[in-house]
């Protein structure tokens, strides 16, 4: 498009704005605020920037997505930013499981997650149990025996407190009679590093976080917390095979601000469906052992409701909420 026609289009857009004419099919008229509910460099951030790149590269949206990291308060900052957004139709967010846990742990936020617009679930990330190769542990059974023997001297590192990693740690402690000590870190990268440096004894990193050390042979996967074995680790059993009914995933979803118009919501769902279907996204999914189909609208709402209940049960059981 040359500049002249851009300017005339601009003038037309101004006309729209002044007349506030009803827009039938929604098109963004300003840069889209693309909030990331996590800090720079983590799994969620990498995925968000990949999505932004795919949109940009294939010119999928009329206005740029402007990513802003709002990781404060375990995502509380991001939830509030969306809730208080002035322009609901131009504010979307990449979210993860703190979408469920943070409103439960911080009732003062007065956030109802079902009021957020369900744009699309892009993937479910998986969790795998890792130990350092110097431990000499090669199977899950050996891990259980060793961890039991060492009691509270066995240290598990994980991201945050009362979040995904600690939920899984509590599950392992309960189901297998362990007494592992849990140390919270601020991000998955730091956990992976401290496992490689043998500062901690085990971790439940996402495959994408531990992949580098796995390929170099420093860390060994023992068990996956999924329903079926991961295609990338065909020899790693699931915890289900060990006789316990448990699976835990991390959602990677895009949500819109509460009160977003139906038209806008439909626009973004369409946009992220195309992102999901792109070659780049599919390649990334396969490389990083991501699971989960694309969900949107009612289906995503139902998924949220189920997940919120599940997290409420888990957190109540561990005493992390009343």
């Amino acid at each position: 498009m040359n500049l002249v026609s851009k300017i005339s289009l601009g003038a037309a857009a101004l006309g729209f704005a002044v007349l506030a004419a009803p827009v039938q099919a929604f098109e963004p008229v300003k840069p889209i605020d693309f909030v990331i509910m996590a800090g720079q460099g983590g799994g969620a951030d990498r995925m968000a920037r990949l999505m932004q790149s795919i949109v940009e590269q294939n010119d999928m949206a009329g206005r740029p997505l402007v990513p802003t990291n709002k990781s404060g308060g375990s995502g509380a900052e991001a939830l509030l930013a969306l809730k208080n957004a002035t322009d609901k139709d131009h504010t979307i967010m990449v979210t993860l499981n703190s979408f469920f846990t943070t409103p439960l742990r911080q009732p003062g936020l007065e956030v109802d997650i079902l009021s957020y617009a369900p744009i699309g679930r892009m993937a479910e990330d998986t969790f795998v149990l890792w130990v350092h190769k110097n431990e000499g542990i090669n199977t899950f059974e050996e891990f259980v025996a060793e961890a039991k023997a060492r009691g509270s001297d066995w240290v598990m590192g994980g991201t945050g407190s009362a979040q995904e990693d600690e939920i899984i740690t509590n599950f392992l402690n309960g189901a297998f009679g362990l007494n592992m000590k849990y140390i919270p870190y601020s991000g998955g990268g730091a956990v992976a590093r401290d496992l490689a440096g043998e500062q901690i004894d085990s971790s439940v990193n996402n495959p994408s976080e531990a992949l580098g050390f796995y390929e170099s042979g420093d860390v060994i996967p023992l068990v996956a917390f999924t329903d079926e074995r991961l295609p990338f680790f065909p020899d790693v059993p699931t915890v289900r095979e060990k006789g316990v009914q448990f699976a835990y995933y991390m959602q990677r979803s895009v949500v819109g601000a509460p009160g977003m118009s139906e038209e806008a919501s439909a626009y973004y769902t369409d946009l992220f469906t195309r992102v999901f279907d792109s070659d780049e996204w599919q390649t990334y999914r396969n490389d990083k052992s991501l699971l989960g189909d694309f969900l949107s609208g009612e289906n995503l709402m139902t998924y949220w409701e189920v997940q919120r209940e599940r997290h409420e049960t888990i957190l109540k059981a561990s005493g992390d909420i009343k």
């Binding site: 460099g41 990498r46 990949l50 990268g189 994408s208 992949l211 580098g212 170099s216 420093d218 990334y284």
Partner: peptide, 20 residues
């Protein structure tokens, strides 16, 4: 933070940063 973004870039370009 900056190297975190660089790292994200390397991953997106199809490299696997790490010991190897």
């Amino acid at each position: 933070p900056t190297t975190a973004v660089l790292l994200a870039g390397m991953v997106i370009w199809g490299l696997q940063p790490g010991p190897r």
